[in-house]
Amino acid sequence: MSNRRDFMGIALGGFTALVGGIPALYAMKRTWDPLPSVKAAGFTNVDVSGAVENQLVVEKWRGKPIFVLKKSKDMKADDRDVVVGSDRFHVSIGLCTHLGCIPAYVSDEHKFKCACHGGEFDASGHETFGPPPSPLEVPPFKVDGTTIVLGEEGAEFKKMKEAGLTV
């Protein structure tokens, strides 16, 4: 008799946990997920036809700052440059790869400097000093005429990603 009661108790507990508990946890996890409207935060178009050399433009994309820097001739070309027509651009997510602060661009030195923990990046977004572990990330982009579309994975971006130049 007592064995049977234990068995029913375990059956009840197991049933509740497996069939009730796990789906309930799943529902709770889903409730914490970013909303579809947030995820579909859309695309940002950046027209670079009027860009000035060595002058940083900060755009906003999915709540993140995006650096767009038109490179002058004396700046080193880089595999991660975005080529629009005959011009080279450095395009990156303007968040330090250390802990996510926004570095400031020092145009005289062609450097991005982060005020938080002293990290530095060159004009191609490569880390040159301090705690940042990796280069500034390149956001998904597509070149469309003189416009850079952020959020869409164009051929150039896919190539960069395959080459492991960005995540």
Binding site: D33, L35, V38, A41, K64
Partner: peptide
């Protein structure tokens, strides 16, 4: 990180 925030950056959620 995005799951904890409910957004790409800290926002309403």
């Amino acid at each position: 990180v995005e799951w904890i925030r409910g957004d790409y950056v800290p926002g309403q959620a």
